[in-house]
Design a protein around this nucleic acid. Sequence first.
DNA 1: ACTGAATCTGGACGCCGTAAAGATCATCTT
DNA 2: AAGATGATCTTTACGGCGTCCAGATTCAGT
Lengths: 209, 209
Amino acid sequence: MREAAAADNRPYHHGDLRRALIDAAQRLLEAEGPTALSLRAVAREAGVSPAAPYHHFKDKGELLDAVAHEGWDLLNELMTEARASHSLVRDKLTALGVAYVRFARDNPALYRVMYDCSRDKESLPEHVHAENDSAYCQVRDTLVEAGAGPMDEQELELATTAAWCAAHGLAEMFAFKQFDHLKDALGGDDAFLRGVFEHMGIFGKAHHG
Amino acid sequence: MREAAAADNRPYHHGDLRRALIDAAQRLLEAEGPTALSLRAVAREAGVSPAAPYHHFKDKGELLDAVAHEGWDLLNELMTEARASHSLVRDKLTALGVAYVRFARDNPALYRVMYDCSRDKESLPEHVHAENDSAYCQVRDTLVEAGAGPMDEQELELATTAAWCAAHGLAEMFAFKQFDHLKDALGGDDAFLRGVFEHMGIFGKAHHG
DNA sequence: ACTGAATCTGGACGCCGTAAAGATCATCTT
DNA sequence: AAGATGATCTTTACGGCGTCCAGATTCAGT
């Protein structure tokens, strides 16, 4: 009397509680924001006791790490798409920036968790800087393509960091109504986004004229 | 038998508890970081009961707001100094950026509180954008001085926002060890800071050569 | 000096993260 | 097939948190 590991009827003790907890956390994050994301609430949402998560995560931080990890993966995917959908190198770089900020705008709570987790450990997750297709490497590689001539390795890292900083700064500013009048005047979020990027040296030279 | 409102002997019920609470919060913030900053801990540090703060602040958020406000004031001062200590407009702009990021680096916990408070209200405190000598206005005015010819009002706001985003992004990145090897290679925090700024169009044209 | 309002304390409530001990159930051994 | 083993989940509990309320204390205006 136990029909497979379906969604309806719990197969094992719970099935795959680890997965269910991460999903519940993501659901709560979208619905209630980062402040409402307590371990107990996640357990409640997943339908288990408050102590159950401790069999799958060392503590609350490790659950958030898992959520953040999936956030970075999603961001990497979006940036890969953005980069692939343009042929001109200069368009690629801007597309990367736009994809980055758009992700932050569309998933503000998740974006916040991604950086908050890193803050405690004082370093971004390894796979953000890892070998291939990581967000950082995509920016760097695109900068190489766009670069006029061979670049100093150090100079390249500086430029990548600069682009990252610029995108992150813009992503954070999106949370503040302070800039709404600018967005409206320019005709929406995306126009505002491109407008700011145009003023940042890394993303296509500025001075609009 | 009550000798004035000295520091030693509590004059009134406490003296100026509001002031004492803000000071205690700042002290705890520096010593233990933002996560340790509970309302109870602040009350403890100030030597009063856990409920005492509620006669001076609506809730915990309002206390943090007060701390954040003083943080912005300090930042404004530092930027005013930085701007005044350079005569060339281009140096002024870079000096503003350096002062901003240096403030964030030297007071990471306070810097975090300043933005976290704003996040909940979805807008920065008014006096950041206010008439004179606010951080935002100083950047904007310096951009006007540096700008080639008269600038569109909208364009000016975009440029100011771009500079702000860039500085904020860089300020946040300082928390991550990820960039330590770059800092070391360049010979310290300040060199790293200037290196990144050089790659941001707003702060002096990039391309180092 | 008396009254009213402001300020502080003590205790309580419901939340939180986390730990320990006991119950339940799949799997492995024989 | 039966029982041992270990993973998974629940119950209970502890201390800390933000916040409210009822009482005590002290200031300020009359």
